[in-house]
């Protein structure tokens, strides 16, 4: 459908000096034309705004304790109610949301970068490089990620969350790297890579200049979907005390605390759970719309 439309448009504009739109602009236009993409982007932007600008308008900071209101339901004074300690749920939730968003974004970026590099090297060099890297990938797939993260968790002391992000990323990249490897093998046969090789460009430079940029659409979509995976994994791990450690708060720690008091104090659980679901949903919608935008011929919603 799109193809014939494009051909038609080409024929119509025949002869006229038309500016060729850049690929990024085409993709962005396609992305924002889909309602999925628009909604997802708007909601996620709103979530970021809430997480980082919300504390500015809130009368309470996440360290404040209101000793006149313990476990109080939402009111004009405390928008989301208060906890057992007198902490303001709104302020604490936003604090946790900041951490979860940052952890999710960073872990996704690191893991996708890792997948791109490992997959591209394995696919480009083949031979022993490929065998070693593929074997390493398989090993990490077999080793239960949850187990390793949980055993190592005592190392993530307070304030050590960047370490946690790296560990999280270390267990998210394997499947993508296998896909990247397969695509790198076929990209290697393309004319522009062959040309670069015969011109004497060193292999590492070819990989970073030609192979990886040509897989960018896959990588961007993958990074987006990894954000939601990372947020979900972080939540589950933190729920059992294996992730973000106490002085820091995240969605996971908040949900763990909230679920204990949810029966008689629903506000401690439902706000944070709702925000989590909305955030992940928005990220998934963006990922899906991006996939369609990069590759209009692909069937929608393939996972």
């Amino acid at each position: 459908m799109t193809l014939s439309e494009e051909q038609l448009a080409e024929e119509l504009s025949d002869g006229a000096a038309m500016r060729v739109p850049s690929r990024a602009r085409v993709v962005a236009a396609r992305f924002f034309r889909s309602s999925q993409g628009r909604i997802g982007f708007a909601v996620l932007a709103l979530m970021f705004l809430l997480a980082f600008a919300g504390p500015l308008v809130s009368p309470w900071s996440y360290t404040d304790k209101d000793f006149t209101a313990f476990m109080q339901p939402p009111s004009a004074r405390h928008w989301f109610g208060t906890l057992q300690t007198g902490a303001d749920v709104f302020a604490v939730t936003l604090r946790g949301m900041q951490k979860s968003l940052v952890v999710g974004l960073l872990a996704a970026l690191i893991s996708t970068a890792l997948a791109a590099v490992v997959g591209a090297f394995a696919g480009y060099f083949l031979g022993w490089t490929d065998r070693t890297l593929s074997w390493l990938t398989d090993l990490l797939l077999v080793l239960p990620a949850f187990l390793v993260l949980a055993i190592v968790s005592p190392v993530f002391g307070p304030g050590q969350w960047p370490l946690f992000v790296v560990m999280l990323a270390l267990f998210l990249w394997m499947v993508t790297s296998k896909i990247v490897r397969g695509m790198a093998i076929s990209v290697k046969q393309r004319e522009f890579v062959q040309a670069a090789r015969y011109m004497g460009v060193p292999p590492v430079r070819i990989i970073f200049r030609h192979v990886i940029p040509n897989l960018s659409s896959l990588l961007i979509v993958d990074a987006t979907l990894n954000v939601s995976t990372a947020i979900l994994t972080e939540t589950s791990l933190s729920y059992f005390g294996f992730g973000i450690q106490p002085p820091d708060v995240s969605f996971g720690t908040l949900i763990a605390d909230g679920s204990k008091t949810a029966v008689y104090a629903p506000w401690t659980f439902w706000f944070v759970a709702g925000l989590l679901v909305v955030t992940v949903l928005a990220v998934n919608l963006i990922g899906d719309a991006l996939r369609d935008a990069f590759d209009p011929s692909s069937s929608r919603g393939r996972r």
Binding site: L232, S236, Y239, V263, A273, V277, V280, N284
Partner: peptide, 20 residues
């Protein structure tokens, strides 16, 4: 889409709350 955005820990706790 909605279900895939709900982590197991939230889903299980919501079910427990609904069941009680």
């Amino acid at each position: 889409f909605l279900v895939l955005a709900v982590p197991v820990v939230v889903l299980a706790n919501v079910l427990i709350l609904l069941a009680t």
